[in-house]
Structures are given as structure tokens and as C-alpha cells.
Simulated scan of single mutants.
Amino acid sequence: MRKLFIVLVAAAAIVLPMQGAEAATAYTVTASVSTSSVDLGKSFVLSGTVSPSAKGKTVKIQRQYAGGSWTTIVTKTLSSTSKYSVKITPSKGGPTKYRAVKAASSTRAQGISSSRTVKVYRWLYLTGLPGTYTPPTIYRGYMYVKGTQFAHSLSIKQGEYADWNLAGKGCNRLKVYIGIDDDSVSGTTGTSYITNGGLDVLNAENTLEKNQSARYVLVSLATTTIRFLPGLNSSDLSTAWMGYGSPQVHCAA
């Protein structure tokens, strides 16, 4: 009887600490970001607190790309007020989640902050993205407008157009240089239209002439489809070209 009592007491001594650990309250970890969007190569700040105080201890700052797993990118020491702050410079475009993790201690369970999403934007050349050209013989490559060279460009004749479907890329801006291609016949003039693929005009550049410098155009996008559509005037439309120099879209993808 005495031996049985000793065994039961010993078993209780083992089980009770385990039950206490399982029931331990987790650390409370907060996280906030200084901005919800940032350009690739620029920085933002992730900051927060841990409670109860864990001054001098560390938190892991973790990142998750869309469809990926959580990865620790830096470890920060908590301040005397149990706060942390870290400057982050994303190296990849697209929506990215961040969080802070405080490891368990002898009295507290692990604490994990809510995740914070930052959209990381970057400029993408349109000519590097899938597009639809009508006809498919639209010139793509280098072009010149008044002697200035533009790479990743398009030259489009009257009756032709180029479309892009940007669905899923989170694009909010388009920038491009527009002018009459130097390969056009002398005296060529025209108007350039950028539309949403239908009848809505996002930008129109009028009174364009050969030997006139290209115009820089920046367009806000609230559509996933864009179309470059020239309106040319020339005595020989077969040698008249509207040039779209280095078109790029600003996307979180």
C-alpha cells in the first residue's frame, strides 16, 4: 500500500508540470507596418511589442511569399520597454506577409503576431509580358523617335493595335514614351490612343509629328486590359509608324 502511494505521488509530480506547461498563457505579440505598399528596393518598418515584458529577449521576424512557407529573415532584441522595430527592404515583388514570433519561455507559451501584408510594386516592361497583337507582325524591339533610342518598344501602323491582359498582376500605373517612329515616311502625323481595350480612352496624345520629341506619358490604371491604338495620317500608311517607347507597368506581382 505504501509503495503504491509513493508511485502515485511520483506520477502526479510528472503529470502536473506537463499540464501546467500545456496550459501556459502565450505571449501577446503585436505587429504594424509603416506602409501597406512599397516599391521594390525601397524600405518600410515593421514594429510592435511583446507582453508581458520580455526585455532583452528576442523575436523572430518572418516573411511569407504568396503560396510559400514562413521564413525567418532577422532576429531582433527587445528593448527595455519590450518593443522591437526592424527596417525591411523587399527583394521580390508581389504581396508579401510579415509577422513576429516570440519563443516560449519557462512560464509563457510561444506568441505569434497577426500577419501584416505589404504589396511590393515593381516596373515591368510590357514587351516582356504576354500580349495580343493585331496583326501579329507589329514591330517589337529598339526604335528611334527624333534620334533618341528606346529599348523594349513597339511600332504600330494604322489599323493595327496591341493588347495586354494584366489580370492578377495588381497593376496601378503605366508609363511610356510616345512619338512618330523615325522610320516613318516624311510628313507623318497622328494621334495615339491608350484605351482599356474597349471604347474608354485612358490617354490621347494629339498633333504628333515626325521629328518631334517623344512625349512622356504616365497613366493611372483601374483596368486589367490596355490597348495601344494609333491614328496616323500619311501619304503612305504602309511606312507610317506610331512608336511606343519602353512601355512599363507598375505591378504588385
Rank of each mutant, 00 (worst) to 15 (best):
M1D: 09
A13E: 11
A13Q: 10
I14L: 15
M18E: 07
G20K: 10
T25L: 14
T25H: 11
A26D: 10
Y27D: 13
T28P: 13
V29C: 07
V29F: 09
V29Q: 09
V33T: 15
T35W: 10
S36N: 15
S36D: 15
S37R: 10
V38I: 15
G41P: 06
F44Q: 06
G48R: 00
V50R: 01
V50F: 07
S51Y: 11
S53K: 09
K55Q: 14
G56V: 12
K57V: 13
I61P: 14
Y65Q: 09
A66G: 08
S69P: 08
I73Q: 11
V74S: 15
V74G: 14
K76F: 05
T77V: 15
T77H: 01
T81Q: 11
T81M: 03
Y84Q: 01
I88F: 03
S91G: 12
S91L: 11
G93Q: 13
P95G: 02
K97L: 07
R99C: 10
A103M: 07
T107L: 06
T107F: 08
Q110S: 05
G111I: 01
S113M: 01
S114D: 12
S114N: 08
S115E: 14
R116C: 05
V118H: 09
V118K: 07
K119W: 00
V120F: 00
Y121M: 03
R122F: 06
L124N: 06
Y125R: 09
Y125W: 11
T127C: 01
G128P: 12
L129A: 00
G131L: 13
P135R: 03
P135H: 02
T137N: 15
G141C: 06
Y142T: 13
Y142L: 07
Y142I: 02
Y144R: 12
V145D: 11
K146G: 00
K146L: 13
T148L: 07
S155A: 14
I156F: 00
I156S: 01
G159C: 12
G159S: 05
G159E: 11
E160I: 03
E160A: 08
Y161P: 00
D163H: 02
N165H: 03
N165F: 03
L166N: 04
L166R: 02
A167S: 15
G168V: 05
G168P: 01
C171R: 03
C171F: 02
Y177G: 04
I180Q: 13
D181G: 06
S186T: 09
T189W: 12
G190H: 03
T191H: 01
T195W: 12
N196Q: 01
N196I: 00
G198V: 06
G198L: 10
A204H: 06
E205L: 10
E205S: 05
N206S: 12
L208W: 15
N211E: 15
N211P: 02
S213I: 12
R215Y: 13
Y216F: 14
V217G: 04
L218H: 04
S220D: 09
T224F: 14
R227K: 03
R227T: 00
F228G: 04
F228Q: 05
L229Y: 14
P230D: 05
L232C: 03
N233M: 07
S234C: 01
S234G: 02
S238Y: 04
W241S: 03
M242Y: 00
G243L: 14
Y244P: 10
Y244R: 10
Y244W: 13
S246W: 00
Q248D: 04
V249T: 02
H250N: 10
C251S: 04
C251Y: 02
A252S: 14
A252K: 05
